[in-house]
C-alpha cells in the first residue's frame, strides 16, 4: 500500500535536513507503529506524505498503491485515500463540524467521479459514527475544533477518518491527551476500520495505545531515519528502557 523509499527532506526556508533516508513499507491490511524520541521527524514524515507546504524533498520517493504521492496536491492525495489524523487538529471558527465533513466527503467523492452523498444518507452515516465515538449532536454543530478539549479534538479526528473511509490512515499521536475511556473509544474506532484493504501508520510515544491497537510491526525513528524495526515486543522494550539502549546499539 504505502512505500517510502530513501526519503530525504529538508526545510524549504532553512538549510536543515530533517528526514535523512526513510525507508518504510506498510502493506494493505497491516498496522505499523512508529515510535521515536521527540524531534526525530515523525510528524515531519506525516506532513510530507500528506503534502504540507514548507518542505523540500531532496531525494527519494513515496508511493500509494503504486501512485507517486509526492507529485500530487494535498487534496489529490486525500482523494487517493490518504488520511492524516493531526497531532494538533486545527480550529476553523464559524464553520460547523458537520458542514466541514460534508464538504470534505463530497469533495473526495467528486474527485473520484462518484455520486455525492445525499443529505439524508450523510446524516444517518454521521450519527451512527458519532454515536460509536460518543460524540454528541452538539459537538457536530459546533465550529470545527473550536473550544473542543484536547481529547474531543482527537476523537473528532477519528470521526473524520471513519466518515472519509481512507485506505491509508496515518495517526500522529492520536493517543496523547486522551483519558483512559477515550483511549478505548478511539482504539475501538480504529479497530472497527481495520480490514484487508486498509493500512495504518500509528505514531505514538506509548505502549498503552498499542495494547488496544495491536501493531503488526513497530519501527523506531531517530534523527530522521528508521533505525530499528521489530514486532510488538519492541514497543514494550521502549516502554521499559527508553531509547538509550536502542540508540547505543545502533551507534555501535
Amino acid at each position: 500500500m504505502l512505500k517510502i523509499n530513501n526519503l530525504h527532506v529538508k526545510l524549504e526556508e532553512e538549510d536543515k535536513q530533517i528526514l535523512k533516508g526513510v525507508d518504510l513499507e506498510v502493506p494493505a491490511g497491516k498496522v505499523h507503529a512508529i515510535m521515536g524520541p521527540n524531534g526525530s521527524g515523525k510528524s515531519t514524515l506525516s506532513y510530507v506524505l500528506s503534502g504540507r507546504d514548507g518542505y523540500e524533498v531532496t531525494a527519494g520517493d513515496a508511493t500509494l498503491d503504486g501512485e507517486e504521492l509526492l507529485d500530487m496536491e494535498p487534496e489529490e492525495r486525500a482523494a487517493a485515500g490518504l488520511f492524516l489524523a493531526f497531532q494538533y487538529p486545527v480550529e476553523i471558527p464559524g464553520v460547523g463540524n458537520m458542514t466541514f465533513l460534508r464538504t470534505a466527503v463530497n469533495a473526495q467523492r467528486k474527485a473520484r467521479g462518484e455520486e455525492e452523498m445525499s443529505a439524508a444518507d450523510f446524516l444517518k452515516f454521521i450519527r451512527a459514527k458519532a454515536k460509536d465515538l460518543k460524540i454528541d449532536a452538539d459537538m457536530l454543530k459546533r465550529p470545527v475544533n473550536v473550544g473542543f478539549s484536547g481529547g474531543e479534538k482527537k476523537r473528532n479526528e477519528i470521526l473524520q477518518m471513519a466518515m472519509l473511509e481512507p485506505k491509508m490512515c496515518i495517526l500522529d499521536e492520536t493517543d496523547s491527551g486522551l483519558d483512559v475511556d477515550a483511549m478505548k473509544l478511539v482504539s475501538e474506532g480504529v479497530n472497527a476500520l481495520r480490514d484487508e484493504g486498509r493500512a495504518f501508520l500509528v505514531i505514538t510515544h506509548y505502549q498503552r495505545l498499542l495494547d488496544h491497537i495491536k501493531p503488526d510491526v513497530v519501527h523506531i525513528m531517530a534523527a530522521g531515519r528508521i533505525v530499528k524495526s521489530g514486532g510488538p515486543e519492541l514497543a514494550l522494550e521502549v516502554e521499559n528502557n527508553g531509547y538509550a539502549d536502542i540508540l547505543a546499539e545502533i551507534d555501535a
Partner: peptide
C-alpha cells in the same frame, strides 16, 4: 486551516 481542509479533500 487551508492545509487541514485540503488534507480532507477540498
Amino acid at each position: 486551516q487551508m492545509f487541514y481542509c485540503r488534507q480532507r479533500g477540498m
